[in-house]
């Protein structure tokens, strides 16, 4: 069953001279319940803009996003957005525990939110770090805090905006494994935006390929790799290499023009 539906999403931004600039043109696709969908496209193609419209953080100029059959106008309770810039999305004056409590404190109160935060921190491997401040942690650990915060809201849909692009290669592998674990355990639906072909193939069930601006949907690629995935073995499978060859080629052509 489709959980997130994007239908005819078009986005224009006002420009100072002349008519508004159309950055996205009638993008339509759906993400099934429990599916891991990656959105792949050249940089500057508006992947994040699309994700923000799905999250209700930005209204589309025309078309609509639906979550669980309901039209998105404003952030829906069942979806949480994970930001690329963890240094800007975490509150620097709050320790790690209170940054995670952020997700639910306005609903269940500070005290219970803190208790919930400890549970989530343990899940992302940060048990015992509750009293640290974000600036005392490495980039990878800060993004774990951001993931714990998103999980604390107990969302059905996780919308991730290049969440691993700002950390080093090894940390990225760790975080990818973490997100796959969480996705499997909690039966989440995930839409993850990335410009990293291998990341998209490694994580996703299907990949939505976008074009350059004005952005349209180029195609949807079925990954078809067995699960559970292994950070080394999966990347050596013939199907993985074939997909990488194919998608990287397409991405490069689109990027070059």
């Amino acid at each position: 069953m489709d959980f997130l539906e994007l239908e005819g999403i078009t986005k224009e931004f006002p420009s100072r001279s002349g008519p508004p600039a159309r950055v996205m043109e009638r993008v339509s696709f759906s993400v099934r319940e429990g599916e891991f969908m990656a959105v792949l496209g050249p940089s500057g193609c508006g992947k994040s803009t699309l994700l923000q419209m799905a999250a209700g953080l930005l209204p589309p100029s025309s078309g609509e996003a639906r979550i669980g059959g309901r039209r998105v106008d404003g952030p829906p309770p069942e979806a949480v957005y994970v930001f690329q810039q963890y240094t800007r999305s975490l509150l620097p004056w709050r320790n790690v525990r209170d940054n995670v409590a952020f997700a639910v404190e306005h609903r269940i109160g500070r005290r219970r939110a803190r208790a919930a935060a400890e549970v989530q921190l343990a899940q992302v491997g940060l048990a015992g770090f509750g009293d640290h401040f974000p600036w005392q942690l490495s980039g990878g650990m800060q993004q774990r805090v951001a993931i714990a915060r998103a999980l604390a809201a107990e969302p059905a849909l996780l919308l991730m905006d290049e969440p691993f692009s700002a950390v080093d290669a090894l940390t990225r592998l760790d975080l990818q494994a973490l997100i796959l674990d969480i996705w499997t355990q909690r039966k989440l639906t995930v839409m993850l935006v990335t410009h990293d072909v291998e990341e998209a193939i490694y994580l996703a069930d299907r990949i939505a390929m976008l074009t350059r601006r004005p952005t349209t949907l180029a195609e949807i690629v079925e990954v078809g790799l067995p699960r559970p995935r292994d950070p080394i073995a999966t990347r050596e499978l013939p199907r993985f290499l074939e997909l990488r060859h194919d998608l990287l080629g397409k991405l490069l052509t689109r990027h070059a023009v």
Binding site: A79, Y81, F83, W93, V104, H106, R149, A153
Partner: peptide, 24 residues
């Protein structure tokens, strides 16, 4: 980005002003 984080977690205006905008 911080304000969007509050929005995606469903913070209302009063809570956002008191616990995000004011400390920021």
């Amino acid at each position: 980005v911080m304000l969007d984080a509050a929005r995606t977690h469903g913070w209302g205006t009063a809570h956002t002003l008191r616990h995000l905008v004011l400390p920021a």
